[in-house]
C-alpha cells in the first residue's frame, strides 16, 4: 500500500472548539470547520506519521469504525482539503517547523 503523509500549512490559524476544529486560512480567506473525525486527522498531521497509522492509531482507537472504511474516508478527506492549500499531502515524509506546520 502506498504510504501517504500529511502536514498542516503554516498559513493558517487553528483552534479547537469542543470536538471540532476551526481553521482560518490566509491562503484564500476561508473559514473552515472540521467535524470530530476530521479534527482527529488534522491534529495528527505532523508530516511524519503515515496516514495509515493515523487512521489505525488515532481514528480507529477513538471512533467505532473499521480500518478499511476509516482509511478510505480519510484519503478522500485529505485529498479534498489539500485542494484548499491548508493541508499538504505527499508520498514522502514532510519537514515541518517546531510547531508542526509546513512553512
Amino acid at each position: 500500500m502506498e504510504r501517504k503523509y500529511i502536514a498542516r500549512s503554516a498559513r493558517i490559524a487553528a483552534r479547537q472548539l469542543g470536538d471540532e476544529m476551526m481553521i482560518m486560512s490566509a491562503v484564500d480567506s476561508k473559514f473552515f470547520t472540521l467535524n470530530p473525525v476530521a479534527a482527529t486527522v488534522w491534529l495528527a498531521a505532523d508530516g511524519q506519521t503515515p496516514l495509515g497509522e493515523i487512521v489505525t492509531q488515532r481514528v480507529c482507537q477513538e471512533f467505532e469504525v473499521s480500518a478499511e472504511e476509516a482509511l478510505r474516508d480519510a484519503e478522500t478527506f485529505v485529498n479534498d482539503l489539500s485542494q484548499h492549500g491548508i493541508l499538504l499531502v505527499s508520498d514522502q515524509p514532510i519537514a515541518t517547523n517546531a510547531a508542526g506546520y509546513v512553512e
Binding site: M24, S29, K30, F31, F32, T33, L34, N35, P36, V37, A38, T40, V41, Q61, E62, F63, E64, V65, E69, A70, D73, A74, F77, D80, L81, H84
Partner: peptide
Amino acid sequence: GARKPYTKPEYRYEEVFETMACNFN
C-alpha cells in the same frame, strides 16, 4: 474508554469577506 460513534471526516467552509459583509461596505 468507549469509542465514539463514527462519522465520515468532513469539513465545511465559508468565505470570510461574505461573513464580514465598515471598510468592506
